[in-house]
Structures are given as C-alpha cells and as structure tokens.
C-alpha cells in the first residue's frame, strides 16, 4: 500500500505529534513498509468471523457503591508541570 507524506501529516495531526520534516520523510517510508506487512490480514476472507475484543468472557463488572477517601489533591498535583490554585495549569484556551 502506498502511503503519501500528506497521509502521514494527517495521521500525525490526529495523533497530536508535531513531526519534523525529517521525521515526516522517514515515517512515510516506515509506515508504508509496516502497513504493507499488516495488509497480509486482508488476504483472508473472514468477514463472517465474530471479532474477539477480550479473550476471557468477563462482562458488566460491578462493585459496591461505597464512598472511599480520594487521593490527596496536593500529592496528585505534585507531578504537574504547571499548577495554580490547586488546579492543572495550561495556556489560555478562550479569548
């Protein structure tokens, strides 16, 4: 399967990756090789086979609705690159 640089740019945007020009070129080549390899599965005619999402059949897992103490706010924020007034801080998103 042929992969174009424009496709790589589109997928990178979806994946929130700011690829450099160099990366765009090398990923176009890599993606083409890997997707051609993955395309082998399209040699199989298996549309009538049911897909398996999970290998053991566990459905609808419930637990008792019990209130437990939450994790400490300061502890959780201690890993944040930037915080303000007990919140995660990011660049302004509303003008």
């Amino acid at each position: 399967m042929k992969i174009t640089k424009e496709q790589v740019e589109h997928v990178a945007k979806l994946a929130r990756l700011n690829l450099t020009e160099e990366e765009k070129i090398s990923f176009t080549k890599d993606m083409e090789a890997i997707i051609s390899f993955a395309d082998q599965i399209n040699d199989l005619d298996i549309d009538d086979v049911k897909p398996t999402d999970h290998v053991i059949p566990i459905n609808n897992v419930f637990r008792p609705d019990v209130v437990v103490p939450p994790m400490d706010r300061e502890l959780l924020l201690s890993n944040a690159p930037s915080q303000e007034n007990g919140c995660f801080s990011v660049p302004k998103i509303v003008e």
Binding site: F27, M31, N42, D53
Partner: peptide, 28 residues
C-alpha cells in the same frame, strides 16, 4: 511514534474495518 502512527491510522475513519476489526477476527 511509529506505533502511535500505525495505531492511529488503523483506527482512523475508513480503515477501522479493514485493519483493527479484521485483526480482532483473526484473534477469534
């Protein structure tokens, strides 16, 4: 990054059935 790109591609609109869902059928 390579795997994120491949995975995003395989899940993106128009390719989901041909790749991800088909791989799940292979799993069965």
């Amino acid at each position: 990054k390579r795997r994120i790109m491949l995975g995003t591609y395989a899940l993106s609109s128009g390719y989901y059935d041909a790749y991800y869902k088909k791989a799940q059928r292979v799993r069965t």
